[in-house]
Amino acid sequence: MKKNLTVLFTLDGLEKVHLYKDVGLTPYYLGKEYNLDVDIVYSNSEKKELPKSFRNVSLIEIKYYKIWSVLKRIDKFRLLESFSFYKYLIKNAKKIDYLMFFHIRLDKFFLVLLYKFLNKNGKVYFKMDSDINGVLKSNIKNITFIRKVQKFLLRILLKKIDLISIETKETYNEILRNGFCNKNLSNKIVYIPNGFDEEYLIENKVKMKSFEEKENIMITVGRIGTEEKNNEMLLEALNNLDLKEWKIYIIGSYTEDFKEKYDEFIKNNQDKKETVTLTGSIENKNLLYSYYNRAKVFLLTSKWEGFAIVYPEALRFGNYIITTDVGGARDITNNGKIGVVTEIENTIQFKNKILKVINNEINLEEKFNQSLELSKKQFLWNEIVKNKQFKKFFNEE
């Protein structure tokens, strides 16, 4: 009989796009590698159009209980808002061999305790999804009384967790040195980066372009205009810059504020009306990947990231990555050997790295080949899930 892996997606707002990110791909590839029945259990405050299954993963929607905003502020453990998840565990905990969560937060505290009480042999896995700043903050000792209480409870939660994965080497090494919430986690922490969904390319017969087939295109992909993405910095870097034969596509849903800034940018840079394009959201994955496939360069201007999903996507298509120094930047560029990492919010430095590409000072064909090699070795989900600590956790060793 197959064992069961259940993801409790307690974060509000599961959407179809999440299934092609770590939320859907981590459990899918784990299930495929270790022959597991996989369920993702979710509760949405708004009705979303979602399938009943994703590949071999069952999607189980449970009731969302609407809570008054005043109660939300009081209910730090989200006991009321997560009521459906407690009901689900009471009914199904004994059938769940492995329980998985995203983000180590106190709203999972009693869910984990309940599961461990109902299923003594059950194992709990957390995909941490944190940057180094979150870890450093957790280890600060001079804190308020409320923070001390929260930290105390988080340390209890950490004891109940059997396996924790973190996405970047920098954060992983920091936890090994100093712990999380000042708790030593060396016996249960594992470095697991986000990866690329190679199976998608096979299923959809996506033909990878050779370097010779690529075009002089740079792209950035994300939630355009949000504070963390800092896309305004890209517009500043491109201001009065001679792009020569290069084109730039800014891809993703955008805020009205950013649209105004983009329009102003085009007004002041009429020569870029046809060369710097704000595409809007591209939900069709094949169409989105066609941009990666055509492009030679990927740009990321973020102020902070855990480990951006766009990184392994850009790497898999051989894009030369120019990125600010956020979570995962050094891992995905092999410490700046095959891409380049700039200081956060350093517009001039970022602009100069783009100029080097435009002026043919970078051997993009060499970087293309190195990117494909690194992607194959370290950033494909079907290989990532073969990690020896995953094998041990899922009783393969």
Rank of each mutant, 00 (worst) to 15 (best):
G13C: 06
G24P: 06
N35M: 04
T144G: 00
G327K: 02
S210T: 10
E305L: 10
K21N: 13
F390E: 12
A93Y: 14
D242A: 11
I250Q: 08
I384A: 03
V206K: 00
K160C: 14
Y172P: 01
K120G: 05
M218E: 00
T277M: 15
G225L: 09
E256W: 01
N269G: 06
G134K: 12
K377D: 15
K188S: 13
T144L: 02
K353A: 02
N182P: 14
E170A: 14
N121P: 03
L25W: 05
Y289C: 07
K247H: 15
D75K: 15
T171N: 04
L79N: 05
L136R: 14
N139C: 02
V41A: 04
V135M: 01
I192R: 06
T144E: 00
T347E: 15
I60Y: 01
L30H: 03
S138L: 04
L287D: 15
V38A: 04
K116F: 09
I132N: 03
G24Y: 00
L19R: 00
Q270T: 03
Y254T: 09
N240Q: 13
N182F: 13
L19S: 05
K367L: 02
S210R: 00
W381A: 02
W246F: 14
S186V: 11
T26V: 13
N182S: 14
E33T: 00
F77D: 13
V206G: 00
N187F: 01
R78F: 04
I282F: 01
N44A: 10
I164R: 05
N133I: 08
N216L: 05
L36S: 03
Y200A: 06
R223I: 14
I140D: 10
Y292G: 08
N293L: 03
E361A: 12
E199T: 04
N240P: 12
G179T: 05
D97A: 03
S84P: 14
T168K: 08
